[in-house]
Write a protein that binds this DNA or RNA. Structure first.
Lengths: 149, 149
DNA sequence: TACAATTTTTGACACAGTCCAAAATCAGGG
DNA sequence: CCCTGATTTTGGACTGTGTCAAAAATTGTA
């Protein structure tokens, strides 16, 4: 994803109404999209189904397909980041553009953000890039959280 | 997974018959298990279904459940490592114990091993461990392979 | 050879993500 | 404010991946 776009999305709009943010990015504004964006903001690292439940609680009805579609659109314009730790379904967060990493508990699945020491992608250098053009080093820290130790 | 166990599995058995390796680890030897181990060795980073196809080609018949069971057992005893890059099903490899990382093409999905500069887990230090006991820093390098650039 | 334990098979199920046609909504222009 | 074209949402079906469970088969030991 474009890091620049993500920063635009996050920095220039952090105090705008969701509808305005969408409009400024050329995305049609609908009640469903606003509700999904709100749900992602309220529940960092939520799964699509958790977002579905949250939106249903807030606007009454939305289809599962629409949640998936909207998350895809929001990811595409850089408002939402999609992560997927090993063994987990996809999770979504609105903290974008800073290349932060995550830390996951092997026991209970708790998940937290970890700032990237470098801040920009890719933040690590592969010992052998195999001729690839690398644009991201995705890091996940695994271990036991304070509660599960 | 126990790094020591993985090294035992990989180093002390790299020239033994698969059946002997299994027996030495206290795992009951069956034709299915030997075939799955062979398939993983022959096809690094294969998915469970690819391993299923390979085993069916080699020993004629095996159930999907048995492949999943066997992979689980082999992972448990440190003979096989299970990885799951974002957006991919689980993949299996017999290169264990060296904490190597992976590099994945965003376009075609090609996947290669990348040696870990440190060699042991965890090879990175989180900027803030949130009180976790960290035992692994899983790194995936993303970009475009030489063919897709 | 017999038997207990374990593994495999078979089929069903659950979860997560995608596909698709019809219906509904949005946005802009008149 | 209404109309219309474009887009989105809905509802249901489908696919892929992993798990569950009971019955059948196999392994290994005595």
């Amino acid at each position: 994803m474009s890091a620049h776009l993500a920063k635009v999305a996050n920095v220039e709009h952090s105090h705008s109404a969701p509808g305005e943010i969408l409009r400024s990015l050329g995305v049609q504004v609908t009640a469903q999209r606003v509700a999904v964006l709100d749900a992602v903001s309220a529940h960092p690292h939520a799964t699509a189904d958790q977002i579905l439940e949250s939106v249903r609680a807030s606007i009454g009805a939305i289809s599962r397909q629409s949640v998936y579609d909207t998350l895809g659109t929001l990811e595409q314009v850089g408002l939402v980041r999609r992560i997927q730790p090993t063994g987990s379904p996809a999770r979504f967060e609105n903290r974008v553009g800073d290349n932060h990493h995550h830390i996951i508990c092997r026991n209970c699945g708790a998940l937290s953000d970890v700032d990237c020491a470098v801040g920009e992608m890719p933040c690590l250098t592969a010992s052998d890039s195999h001729g690839y053009t690398i644009d991201e080093a995705e890091v996940a820290y695994w271990g036991l959280c304070p509660t599960c130790q």
